[in-house]
């Protein structure tokens, strides 16, 4: 199997991860495909693909890093409760309604670091040690992020979506003469 075959074999998984990371949804997304494309090009240009046993780990590390550097997804850095800066994805276009949309909204609502950890382990099936290597954190940090992500997502999925408040037929203020 050539290095290109190896990369091609991993590309569908990278697409899946990229979509989950960028939109939280399985629907096609150009930005996610661009992310995968950039990752593949970087791997090809590095010319260290052949014979590498940890190709998947390096590709996922690359795509995770490239996603963090993406300027267009509305990320902002905020301070979390523990004092560490946390990347939080913008929530301007959170989908609601269908189960997958609700899941997408829940995933996008997670801090990016927690979302990365959850997706690598749950969706991509990486062992905790490998996921920690991809994210360049210790195993205990990964476990903490998993706990945070799962608990937050659980609360979100169990909460009832708040119905849109109907607009008032009567204005708040009336002119009193």
């Amino acid at each position: 199997m050539t290095s290109r075959d190896e990369l091609n074999g991993l590309t569908p998984r990278l697409r899946r991860y990229a979509r989950a990371l960028v939109t939280g949804s399985p629907m096609p997304c150009d930005a996610a495909d661009d992310l995968v494309h950039a990752t593949l090009m970087r791997a090809l240009n590095a010319r260290t693909v052949a014979g590498s046993g940890d190709l998947a780990i390096r590709l996922y590390a690359t795509i995770t890093q490239l996603h963090r550097e993406m300027p267009a997804i509305g990320q902002s850095v905020v301070a979390s409760g523990s004092g560490r800066p946390t990347l939080v994805a913008g929530t301007a276009a959170l989908p609601t309604g269908a189960p997958h949309s609700r899941l997408a909204a829940g995933l996008l609502g997670l801090p990016l670091e927690d979302r990365e950890a959850l997706l690598l382990v749950t969706l991509e099936g990486f062992e905790h040690g490998d996921a920690a290597r991809i994210l360049r954190v210790s195993r205990s940090v990964l476990i903490a992020r998993l706990t945070q992500a799962r608990a937050t997502l659980e609360r979100f999925l169990e909460s009832k979506p708040t119905p849109r408040r109907p607009s008032r037929a009567v204005p708040h203020l009336r002119l009193v003469t």
């Binding site: 569908p12 979509r19 989950a20 949804s25 399985p26 899941l103 995933l107 997706l119 969706l123």
Partner: peptide, 8 residues
Amino acid sequence: IRAAFQSV
């Protein structure tokens, strides 16, 4: 999560 993304 796995079921949502299995079609990709």
